[in-house]
Design a protein around this nucleic acid. Structure first.
Length: 488
DNA sequence: TGAAATGTTGGGGCG
DNA sequence: ACGCCCCAACATTTC
């Protein structure tokens, strides 16, 4: 048996890689990467954004560890649907194996490839812990409430142990020729710069073991703290598959001593499962709100406000810190993402899809399922989303989850000398305090672009009115369309 | 995985 | 000692 193992951007690893494991124990293996510019998860071309650097690191790591085991990652440029049938014939391969993806852009092409290649094309569901679509309510429908989904998940069968990496890989078949590596995208992309947050399977495994040893114990308390390294920082590794979700699940469940950090982290992985499952069952969430009553919500398009939010100059310190961290690091802790999203959608009344696209572009971990689920949740229009009347207060959130203001000081250096009491509300600081801290509001740091109290009332009024309209417009026609609403 | 408004309670100061 | 008020702390309701 001769198998092409087709790596894609959600499985850049050798360990716990079921398609590779199966192939390596059943004959010849050809590791393949298809370089399709349209399917490349990176922004820009020549620039080296953190996201692009992370992605390149991960690919190069994959290339190196395949070489180390006696084989080679073959890189072929072109479109998936053209390249794959061509190389199957040229290399006389018996089959192609890959990991399934819930991303509809990829899923669509997979359907097409299944038509072309038939049973020679094998898809594995290691992207998630449970195959998407496998959990259903008693009436046979997808879950729309997280707690019910999580209950069903826990009741489902145990998660198996992760597979080790194959110790050696069979050498490439000698009866056919493979393209050389000299024009490899991987070499073109390298700039030799050491990344602040390196990608690759090795770095991922180190982050996982560091988290299990040092972060897990306090995870449930600290994961919301923006000023501490309290989150796992594993999101980008899960996104590119340099860490499998099963490896993460397994590692935290084996950890000693046990703490409620394990349950809290498992819960986050279940949110991921929920997001992937939702995107699988309902790809339309990428275009429109999950909850139909949110369709046509009167979002505004104000480029001045948008620019202030993107660049981190809204005048709300935590919101600005999150915006700047996103652009500089490609990472934002979840709590700060929620605060930033609340500000954009509820204070500025800008369409969540605009923020969603911006985050998808810049986050190292930007994947469509999680990112869309998070933004829809924050906007209040998603699966099990917060009710529309839950509006974050950026000052209270800042004081609660960045109590000394160190997160703000790190990312908004013009406020570095502000005392904790005023760092989240500089506009209330006495002139003497501002003077000592070297802050001139409106010059060195902006005044708030909207008054939060006013903005909150404005949003609530708009939402109330829209919901009323939607109800009267849809209730006679299509009572079923409201069934996805959260029960009381 | 909210926040603000409103209601309730209880302790302490005070006449 | 007692009632009264204030208000902090906490609970409940409302958006």
């Amino acid at each position: 048996m001769r198998t092409i193992v087709w790596f894609r951007d959600n499985d850049l690893r050798l360990s716990d890689h079921e398609p590779l494991w199966d192939a390596a124990h059943n004959g010849e293996v050809i590791p393949l990467w298809i370089l399709d510019p349209e399917m490349t998860p990176s922004n820009g071309g020549a620039d080296m954004s953190p996201r692009r650097q992370f992605y390149i690191d991960s690919l190069r790591g994959l290339e190196a560890s395949i070489a180390q085991r006696g084989s080679r990652l073959i890189v072929v440029p072109g479109k998936w649907v053209e390249v794959l049938p061509r190389v199957v014939a040229a290399w006389r391969a018996d089959r192609v194996v890959a990991h399934r993806s819930v991303d509809p852009r990829i899923h669509e092409q997979d359907e097409h490839l299944t038509n072309v290649l038939g049973s020679a094309f094998g898809l594995y569901s290691g992207e998630t812990l449970l195959a998407p679509g496998s959990l259903r309510t008693s009436s046979g429908r997808p879950y729309s409430v997280f707690t019910q989904f999580a209950r069903a998940f826990r009741a489902a069968s145990d998660i198996g142990a992760p597979l080790p990496p194959p110790e050696v890989l069979p050498a490439l078949p000698s009866d056919v020729s493979f393209p050389g590596t000299e024009t490899s995208f991987l070499e073109l992309a390298g700039n030799g710069r050491k990344s602040a947050f390196p990608g690759g399977e090795k770095a991922a495994q180190e982050r996982l073991s560091h988290f299990v040893r040092h972060g897990l114990l306090t995870y449930s308390d600290d994961r919301n703290r923006m000023d501490l390294p309290g989150t796992s920082r594993l999101s980008a590794d899960l996104r590119f598959g340099t860490l499998s979700v099963r490896q993460a699940w397994s590692a935290v469940h084996k950890a000693v001593p046990r703490s409620d950090g394990t349950a809290a982290f498992a819960n986050e992985l279940m949110w991921r499962e929920f997001a992937y499952s939702t995107l699988w069952d309902c790809p339309a969430v990428l275009q429109s709100p999950f909850r139909p009553e949110f369709a046509g919500f009167p979002w505004r398009s104000d480029d001045v406000l948008w620019q202030a939010w993107v660049s981190g100059s809204t005048g709300y310190p935590v919101v600005d810190a999150a915006a700047r961290q996103l652009l500089q690091e490609g990472f934002v802790p979840n709590r700060a993402r929620m605060i930033a999203a609340s500000c954009l959608t509820k204070d500025l009344l800008i369409d969540y899809r605009r923020g969603e696209a911006h985050y998808l572009e810049h986050l190292l971990d930007g994947d469509r399922a999680n990112n869309n689920a998070g933004w829809q949740w924050s906007a209040g229009c998603g699966c099990d989303g917060q009710p529309y009347f839950r509006v974050f207060n950026p000052v209270i959130q800042g004081e609660r989850f960045d109590p000394r203001g160190n997160y703000v000081r790190r990312w908004v250096p013009e406020l570095a000398a502000m005392p904790a009491k005023y760092v989240h509300r500089p506009w209330e600081a006495p002139a003497a305090v501002l003077g000592t801290a070297g802050v001139r509001l409106g010059e060195t740091y902006p005044l708030p672009i909207v008054d939060h109290r006013f903005a909150r009332e404005r949003f609530l009024a708009a939402a109330r009115q829209h919901m009323r309209q939607q109800r009267s417009a849809t209730s006679d026609v299509e009572p079923d369309s409201l069934l996805t609403r959260r029960p009381a």
